[in-house]
Design a protein around this nucleic acid. Structure first.
Length: 513
RNA sequence: GGCCCGUUGGUCAAGGGGUUAAGACGUCUCUCUUUCACGGAGAAAUCAGGGGUUCGAUUCCCCUACGGGCUACCA
C-alpha cells in the first residue's frame, strides 16, 4: 500500500432519506479516515435533477450529526476541494468528457429514448442475450461512430440533443483489487457503452464520481456492494483519463439484508415489519407520509452507531461487542469487514440500547425522563425523587420512554388494578391486617427503603404471616400492577402520605364482603 | 437470461489445514427474588451439497445448489 494520505468520502444522493445502510457506509468511511488520521469528506451526488427531494440533504447531515459522525470537508462546512455538491461543480465535468471524445474513448450519440427502446426490443426478440448499447449494437445506432463526420457536425451545430457515451473496448480483461473481496475480474465485452454526459448538460454519476474522486484526491472508495458491477467502468475511466496511478483503492461493502425473507433492506421494510430503518423521523415532502426513526423510537445514538457498525464488521480476536465510537476508530480495519450480507435484527438492536441505558447514571436518565413528563404536562418531582425512580426502573427498560410507561404510577393516580391478586388475596381478614399495617407505617419516622422494609418484615413475623400475605397486595395497592421494583422502593418513593393514601383508596375501591 | 459477489447455529459472528468450532442476541431450563426485570449457572442449535488437493479439510481448488447485487440520459 502506498503512503498516500487517506482521503475518503461518503457520497449520497439527495433522493430521499438515507437508511441504515447509508449510515453504515458513512460510518465505515468515518472510522477508516479517523483510524488512519485521514480526511473524511461528504459529497452530494445530485447529478439527477429530476430525483431531487427537498430536505434529503439536510436530513443526511442531521442524521450523521446525531450519530456523532463528524466530517472534515463537505457541504455547509466547505473545504479546499469544494464545492461539495455536484450540481455546483457542473462546469468542471465537460472538459473531461471532451478529453475522452478527443482521445477516441467516447463518442456522441443522438438516439432518442424511443429508438433505444426499439433497439433493446429488437435484440431481445432476436434472442441476443444482452440488449445493451455496446460494441455490437452501437454499429446500428445513431452516433458519431457510424454517422458521417459532417452529419455529426451538422447535428451538433443545429443543437440536436445528444449524450456522450464511453466507447468500451470490445474485449478487454478488467481486473482490480478490492480491499474486501480480493481480485475481481470482468470482461469489457460484458459492459455497455454507458452514458457519461447527459443531454441536459449534466454528467452521469459515473463520470462525475470518477472526476470528483480524482479532483478531490480520494485515496479509498468505500461504498456499497451495489456498486461493484460498475466498478470496472470506473476503472476504465481512470485508465482512459490517464489517472491510473492515482486511482483510489476500492472496498465494496456487503449489503444489509432484511430480517425476514429475501433481498436487501429497503425503505418500506420498516413500516411493514414494525421497526425503524431510518436514523431519524422522515416526513415525505410529497406524500406527507411519516417514517419513524431510531432516534424517535427511543434509541441513543451511541448504541445505534455501535449496532450498525457490527452489522458487517467485527474487530475479531475479542469477545467485546459494546464499543464507543473512539474504540471503534482504534479497532477498525477494512480487512475485518465481512464479505457476506448481514441481516438486520431488531431484537439485537434493542439489546444494544438496553445495555447502554443500564450503564447510564440515574441522574442522566432523570433528566431525560423529565423531558418526557414536561411534554405530557405532568408535574415533575424533584431531582432526588426522579433519580430514585429511574434507579428503581432502569434495569427493566430498554428505552427511556419506558421509564414513564412502567412507572407512570409514580406521577399519576393508578389507572387500573390487576385483579388476579385482588380476587385471590383480598378479604375481610386481609383488610384487618392492612389496617394494622397502615397504623404501623404511619408511626414510622423515617420513610426510607430500609426502615420500611424492616417495619414490614417485622409486622409480618410478629403477626405470624407470610411475605405472600402482605407484599403482593401492598404492591397492588401502591402501583396497581404485580410487576415492578421492590415494594419498599415504591413506598419510599411515594412517601408516607401517598403510601397511606393509596392503601385507603384501595380499600374504598375494593370493599370486602 | 447475462455478468459479478457471497454461503460457519434462527440472527450477528470468531476462527482459518489437525480446535471439545469462541462469544453475543433470541429461545428454553435452573437459580436469586414478594413480582417483573437485572445478575448468575446451564441447554438445544452451525461449517449448504458433491468432487478434488492433502496423512488430514470448516479452512485451499473446482462444480452444483441456494442467496444477493447489477443489467436507465438513477444514483
Amino acid at each position: 500500500m502506498t503512503e498516500r494520505p487517506v482521503r475518503v468520502r461518503y457520497a449520497p444522493s439527495p433522493t430521499g432519506p438515507q437508511h441504515l445502510g447509508g449510515v453504515r457506509t458513512a460510518l465505515y468511511n468515518y472510522l477508516f479516515a479517523r483510524k488512519h488520521k485521514g480526511t473524511f469528506i461528504i459529497r452530494i451526488e445530485d447529478t439527477d435533477q429530476t430525483r431531487f427531494v427537498p430536505g434529503a440533504e439536510a436530513y443526511m447531515l442531521d442524521a450523521l450529526n446525531w450519530c456523532g459522525i463528524t466530517y472534515d470537508e463537505g457541504p455547509v462546512k466547505g473545504g479546499a476541494y469544494g464545492p461539495y455538491k455536484q450540481s455546483e461543480r457542473k462546469s468542471m465535468y465537460r472538459q473531461y468528457a471532451d478529453q475522452l471524445l478527443e482521445s477516441g474513448h467516447a463518442y456522441y450519440a443522438f438516439d432518442t429514448a424511443e429508438e433505444l427502446d426499439a433497439m433493446r426490443e429488437r435484440f431481445k426478440a432476436s434472442g441476443m442475450a444482452a440488449a445493451a448499447y455496446n460494441a455490437v449494437t452501437r454499429e446500428y445506432m445513431k452516433n458519431s461512430l457510424v454517422l458521417p463526420q459532417d452529419e455529426v457536425k451538422a447535428r451538433l451545430e443545429q443543437g440536436e440533443p445528444y449524450v456522450i457515451r464511453i466507447k468500451m473496448p470490445r474485449k478487454d480483461e478488467i481486473k482490480f483489487h478490492d480491499l474486501i473481496r480480493g481480485w475481481v475480474t470482468f470482461n469489457s465485452s460484458q459492459l455497455d457503452d454507458k452514458v457519461l454526459f447527459k443531454s441536459d448538460g449534466m454528467p452521469t454519476y459515473h463520470l462525475a464520481n470518477v472526476v470528483d474522486d480524482y479532483l478531490m484526491n480520494i485515496s479509498h472508495v468505500i461504498r456499497g456492494e451495489e456498486w461493484l458491477p460498475s466498478a470496472p467502468l470506473h476503472v476504465t475511466l481512470y485508465k482512459f483519463l490517464g489517472w491510473e496511478s492515482v486511482m483510489p483503492q476500492f472496498a465494496h461493502l456487503p449489503l444489509i439484508l432484511r430480517p425476514d425473507g429475501n433481498g436487501k433492506l429497503s425503505k418500506r421494510d420498516g413500516d411493514r415489519l414494525g421497526f425503524p430503518v431510518f436514523p431519524l423521523n422522515w416526513k415525505d415532502p410529497n406524500t406527507g407520509e411519516l417514517s419513524t426513526g431510531f432516534r424517535e423510537r427511543g434509541f441513543f445514538p451511541e448504541p445505534f452507531t455501535n449496532m450498525i457498525a457490527l452489522l458487517g464488521w467485527h474487530p475479531g480476536h475479542m469477545q467485546q461487542e459494546i464499543f464507543t465510537l473512539d474504540e471503534m476508530v482504534q479497532l477498525f480495519s477494512i480487512e475485518h469487514v465481512g464479505k457476506s450480507g448481514a441481516r438486520f435484527d431488531y431484537e439485537k438492536a434493542k439489546w444494544f440500547n438496553q445495555e447502554y441505558l443500564k450503564k447510564l447514571d440515574a441522574s442522566v436518565l432523570a433528566e431525560a425522563l423529565k423531558h418526557i413528563l414536561e411534554q405530557k404536562n405532568i408535574e415533575v418531582p424533584n431531582a432526588e425523587i426522579l433519580g430514585a425512580i429511574c434507579l428503581s426502573l432502569k434495569e427493566r427498560c430498554t428505552f427511556v420512554h419506558e421509564l414513564y410507561e412502567q412507572g407512570y404510577y409514580f406521577f399519576e393516580a393508578i389507572r387500573d388494578y390487576d385483579d388476579s391478586i385482588v380476587s385471590k388475596k383480598w378479604n375481610a381478614i386481609a383488610k384487618e391486617r392492612f389496617n394494622l399495617l397502615a397504623d404501623t407505617l404511619a408511626t414510622l419516622e423515617a420513610f426510607d427503603i430500609k426502615s420500611i422494609e424492616t417495619a414490614i418484615l417485622q409486622f409480618i413475623s410478629s403477626n405470624q404471616l407470610q411475605n405472600g400475605d402482605v407484599l403482593p397486595l401492598l404492591r397492588i395497592m401502591l402501583s396497581g400492577t404485580k410487576n415492578g421494583p421492590a415494594v419498599y422502593d415504591i413506598a419510599s418513593i411515594l412517601g408516607k402520605d401517598k403510601t397511606l393514601e393509596r392503601m385507603r383508596i384501595f380499600q374504598q375501591k375494593f370493599p370486602t364482603a
